[in-house]
Design a protein around this nucleic acid. Structure first.
Lengths: 120, 120
DNA sequence: TCAAAGGTAGGAAAAATTTCGTACGAAAAA
DNA sequence: TTTTTCGTACGAAATTTTTCCTACCTTTGA
């Protein structure tokens, strides 16, 4: 299913730090993003569990949440939807926009060139 | 400001077809996307005008709406926000994901290689 | 002229998303 | 044991976004 904006923030914490408690996620959000109440984060993560976006291990009192799908799979899906809706599915259009209007570091560029070279 | 999902759909019609009436945009949405009432599209476009996302020419009875910002500028901003939030700002990560997990056509690939070659 | 068609405006309702207060149970500390 | 701390659950409220009803005006065609 479709993660909402707030759900995505939570997923990102789980991706970065692995399976976590609500407390941990909430702390990270407050450190890295914005003020948010514990109960709000809890509620959101409960909803995500209902939707099947995350799995919940209830064996101990402190429930442990983890992403239901691998990070790559979710990100790919989101990226693909982004390309489809914004660039009519043209990956090259996206790349050109990405490097046309932005100043990307030389390292990044050569990294990409190498990557593309080895793609065949 | 931030276009919402529905607002983005409208912007895309305006980008593709140029300045348009509400009627025209609504028809396109119904053709290309989904069933939506004229008054819903009207309302949304009025809100977008208030927010400054689109400009409105009221000189004739049929108001003409056009994007307030150039397509590239808006798309770049959205893309940048996407990269920042999903790939911590790393354009190369995005590109690798884009081509790693997806089967991109050979044409697209060479197009991009050429593009990157001429970037310096 | 006058009805029909097509336009805008505005408000209210509906739906989706986000936030948080409160209750209550378990664990830990005093 | 008793109190405090820390956890979940639940429901309701607030906010944001989306949808559409209705009123009313202008243009067009019969």
């Amino acid at each position: 299913m479709e993660p909402t904006k707030s759900e995505l923030e939570i997923l990102q914490v789980l991706w970065e730090h692995g399976p976590s408690t609500v407390r941990f996620v909430n702390d990270k959000l407050n450190e890295e993003k914005r003020a948010v109440q514990y109960s709000s984060t809890l509620k959101l993560m409960q909803i995500m569990a209902e939707k099947g976006i995350v799995m919940r291990d209830e064996s101990s009192m402190k429930h442990i949440y983890s992403p239901a799908e691998p990070e790559d799979k979710t990100k790919s899906a989101l990226l693909e939807r982004f390309v489809d809706s914004m660039y009519k599915g043209s990956a090259s259009s996206l790349v050109m926009q990405l490097f046309g209007n932005k100043n990307t570091s030389a390292e990044e560029l050569s990294e990409i060139r190498d990557f593309l070279k080895n793609l065949d």
